[in-house]
Each structure stands twice: as C-alpha cells, then as structure tokens.
Amino acid sequence: LGPKYVGLWDFKSRTDEELSFRAGDVFHVARKEEQWWWATLLDEAGGAVAQGYVPHNYLAERE
C-alpha cells in the first residue's frame, strides 16, 4: 500500500468530501492533489475506517 502517514494536528472537516481526524491518527494516502490528499483513515489493526480529503500539511510520513 505504500507509506503510511500520521496526523500532526486535529482537523475538522468543512465539507462532505473532507475527513475529520485527530492528531496521531494513521492514514494511507491514495492520491496527492496539490493542497488536498485523498486518504483512508486506518484503525489500529490497519483496517479502513473512512475516506476523504485531508490537508497535506496536516500529515507527516510515518517512519
């Protein structure tokens, strides 16, 4: 699936296409579209919880 990303700060969605998340949440990014990335929010087991657009500057690649 490629690298995983972690949320740096809490983010509250403003549209139906955006995905709310908390700092520390883990994502798989499917598409990078300039300022907004289409991402899947993952649970602790790595299963998909939700999908939506997230601001790229709120995520960091997980080491």
Rank of each mutant, 00 (worst) to 15 (best):
N57T: 09
Y5R: 00
K12M: 14
L19G: 00
N57H: 12
D25W: 05
H28P: 01
V26H: 07
N57S: 09
K4V: 15
R14P: 06
P3N: 10
G7A: 15
A30Q: 15
A30L: 15
G7N: 01
L8Y: 04
W38I: 05
S20I: 04
A60F: 09
V26T: 11
A23M: 08
T40A: 06
F21R: 00
D16P: 14
F27G: 00
H56Y: 14
K32I: 06
E63S: 13
G2I: 14
V29N: 02
A45L: 12
D43M: 03
A48W: 09
Y53H: 02
E34L: 10
A60E: 13
A45V: 10
R14V: 10
Y53R: 10
R22C: 12
H28C: 10
Q35K: 13
E18F: 12
K32C: 08
R62V: 15
R22Q: 11
S13N: 07
Y5G: 01
G52L: 03
G2H: 13
A50V: 07
W9E: 07
D25F: 06
N57W: 14
G7I: 07
L41D: 00
W9S: 07
R62Y: 15
K4L: 15
G7M: 05
K12G: 06
E33S: 09
G7E: 03
A50R: 10
H28E: 13
V6D: 04
E18N: 07
G7T: 03
E63H: 12
D10K: 02
F21Q: 00
W36V: 08
G46N: 06
W9G: 06
F27Q: 01
V54N: 01
E44T: 09
E44R: 08
E34S: 13
W37K: 00
V49N: 04
K12S: 13
V26L: 14
F21K: 00
Y58V: 05
E17P: 05
L19M: 10
Y58H: 05
S20N: 06
V6G: 02
L19P: 01
A30S: 15
G2R: 12
T40P: 01
Y5I: 00
W38D: 00
S20T: 09
E18Y: 12
E34K: 11
R31W: 14
Y53D: 01
A50D: 08
A60H: 10
W9F: 13
V29H: 02
L42N: 00
L8S: 04
H28W: 12
D16E: 12
T15I: 08
A50T: 07
A48V: 13
W37I: 03
E17C: 15
G46C: 13
K12H: 14
W38A: 00
F11V: 03
W36F: 11
L8C: 13
T15C: 15
K4D: 11
F21A: 00
A45H: 14
D16L: 11
V6N: 03
F11M: 01
P3G: 10
R62T: 15
Y53I: 05
D16K: 12
H28S: 10
V26E: 10
S20G: 06
E63K: 12
E61W: 07
E34W: 08
F27Y: 02
L42V: 07
Y5H: 03
Q35P: 06
A23R: 11
Y53K: 11
W9A: 09
A39M: 03
A23H: 06
E17R: 12
V6H: 05
L1T: 12
L1S: 12
G24D: 03
W9I: 10
L59Y: 03
R31N: 07
P3H: 10
Y58D: 03
A39Y: 03
G24E: 03
W36K: 10
G47R: 15
T40Y: 13
L42W: 02
P55A: 03
Y58L: 07
T15V: 09
Y58K: 03
V49A: 07
L41P: 00
G7S: 14
D16S: 12
P3Q: 11
K12A: 12
A23P: 04
P3V: 13
K4I: 15
D10E: 07
E17A: 12
W38S: 00
E63D: 14
V6C: 13
R62M: 15
P3S: 10
V49L: 10
Y5S: 00
R31T: 08
L42S: 01
R62W: 15
R22W: 07
E33K: 06
Y58R: 03
R14A: 12
H28Q: 10
N57F: 09
E34Q: 11
W9N: 07
L1Y: 12
W9Y: 14
P55H: 07
A45E: 13
E18P: 00
N57A: 08
D25A: 08
H56E: 11
L19F: 04
E33D: 10
V29K: 01
L19T: 01
E18H: 11
G52Y: 02
D10H: 05
T40G: 01
V26A: 06
F11L: 01
L8F: 03
G2F: 14
R14N: 14
Y58E: 01
N57C: 15
W9L: 10
V29Q: 00
Y58P: 03
W9K: 12
A48D: 09
Q35H: 15
L41G: 00
R22M: 10
L59T: 03
A45I: 08
N57K: 07
A50I: 06
G46L: 05
P55L: 06
Y58N: 03
Q35R: 11
S13K: 10
W36A: 07
Q35D: 13
T15H: 10
Y58I: 04
G7P: 04
E33N: 08
N57D: 13
G2T: 13
R22L: 09
E34Y: 09
F11A: 01
E18L: 10
S13A: 15
P55Q: 03
V6L: 06
R62P: 10
T40D: 03
L59M: 05
D43V: 06
S13I: 06
P3I: 13
L19I: 11
D43F: 06
W37L: 05
V54W: 04
W38T: 01
A30N: 15
H28G: 03
E17Y: 12
L1C: 14
A30D: 14
G47I: 13
E33C: 15
V6S: 03
D16M: 10
A39Q: 01
V54A: 01
E17D: 14
R62F: 15
D10F: 09
E61G: 06
S13T: 03
Q51V: 10
E33V: 08
P55M: 04
R62A: 15
G47C: 14
W38C: 08
N57P: 02
P55W: 06
P3E: 08
K4T: 14
D25N: 07
A48L: 09
L8A: 03
A60N: 06
K4S: 10
G52T: 00
G52I: 05
E63G: 12
G2C: 15
L19K: 00
R14M: 11
H56A: 15
A48Y: 10
R31A: 07
V29W: 04
R14E: 13
V6A: 03
Q35E: 14
G7C: 06
L8Q: 05
T40R: 03
L59N: 01
P3A: 11
L19D: 01
F27P: 01
G7L: 08
L41F: 02
A30T: 15
E34C: 15
R31Y: 12
F27I: 04
H28A: 10
P3K: 13
T15D: 08
V54C: 12
D25C: 06
E33F: 11
V6K: 05
E18V: 13
W9D: 05
G24K: 02
V29Y: 02
K12I: 15
A39C: 07
L41Q: 03
G2K: 12
E18M: 12
W37P: 00
A30R: 08
Q51L: 05
Q35A: 12
L42Q: 02
E63N: 12
R62G: 11
P55G: 02
Q35V: 11
W36I: 06
A23Q: 09
G7D: 04
W37H: 00
R62D: 13
V29R: 00
Q51K: 06
V29D: 01
Q35S: 11
G2W: 14
D10M: 05
S20C: 08
N57V: 06
F11D: 04
V54K: 01
D10V: 06
Q51D: 08
E44I: 08
E18T: 11
L41C: 03
K32Y: 08
A50G: 09
A45M: 13
G2E: 15
A23D: 02
W36R: 15
W38K: 00
D43C: 02
Y53F: 10
T40Q: 07
A39R: 01
G47T: 13
H28L: 15
W38L: 08
Y53C: 08
E44M: 08
W36T: 04
A50K: 10
A39V: 15
L59V: 04
L41W: 02
A50E: 06
A60D: 07
L8T: 02
H56C: 15
G52R: 01
Y5P: 00
R22E: 07
Q51N: 08
L59C: 04
A60T: 12
W36H: 07
H28K: 07
G52C: 07
